[in-house]
Design a protein around this nucleic acid. Structure first.
Lengths: 106, 106
DNA sequence: CTGTCTATTTAATAATTGTTGAAATAACAA
DNA sequence: TTGTTATTTCAACAATTATTAAATAGACAG
């Protein structure tokens, strides 16, 4: 993960509708959810969601697969893990203890 | 952590300069760094950084303390942890195994 | 008080982003 | 083919965001 990828992933999640989509997909696991199911759960217009799916896909935070007329989206955990690693890299200059006392980062 | 706070934190990090600031402060640990030191490391204009400090502070991702003429900023790990928890809540519907196989989320 | 250093605020501009209706595409059934 | 369903793309507009120069504020030394 580099800065550009991390910014893209963070920006993709930094929007209420997209964050809700992502959390729904994290909960759904491997099976994922169809665009229509997500639209129903979030009460959002299809065009609006399509726009957000594209942003999340472009950041590789979600993947899609077609099944008949439906498109299923699912969370890509690897990219989330990469982002978390990038955010906490060299935490407290490598001094684990200094890192644990204030909060409980990782 | 709620959706609004999470979006604020994610948006704060979703910008190259702010992400660089945050990572610098994660590395610096409790001691933090002065605004001037950060400006030097990132070769950014003071006014630009001030704008970004405000965004990060508002999201409570960083804290500040004054020491003489200097203002020291440091990372607030608690909010980062809250955000990570929010992102992975109810992962795979609670089925830990389904969650671990694809990547290694948490 | 005056001057210097550190950092923030203001104001203006340029660029990016989110939403939605309408049209288009694609899969399937009759 | 024709019709129906599921989803995306297009176009236009409103709203938000980032950057910078210039002005301001606050701390300290002489």
């Amino acid at each position: 993960m580099n800065s550009e990828q991390a910014v893209k992933a963070l920006a993709a999640l930094a929007q209420p509708t997209r964050l809700a989509i992502y959390r729904l997909l994290v909960e759904a696991g491997q099976a994922g959810m169809s665009a229509g199911q997500i639209a129903e759960r979030l009460s959002a217009a299809p065009a609006t969601l399509s726009f957000h799916f594209r942003t999340l896909s472009h950041a590789e935070l979600i993947a899609s697969r077609q099944e008949g007329r439906f498109i299923f989206y699912s969370a890509n955990f690897a990219v989330m893990n990469g982002m978390l690693g990038y955010l906490t890299e060299n935490c407290c200059g490598g001094n684990i203890e200094a890192c644990r006392t204030p909060g409980d980062l990782i």
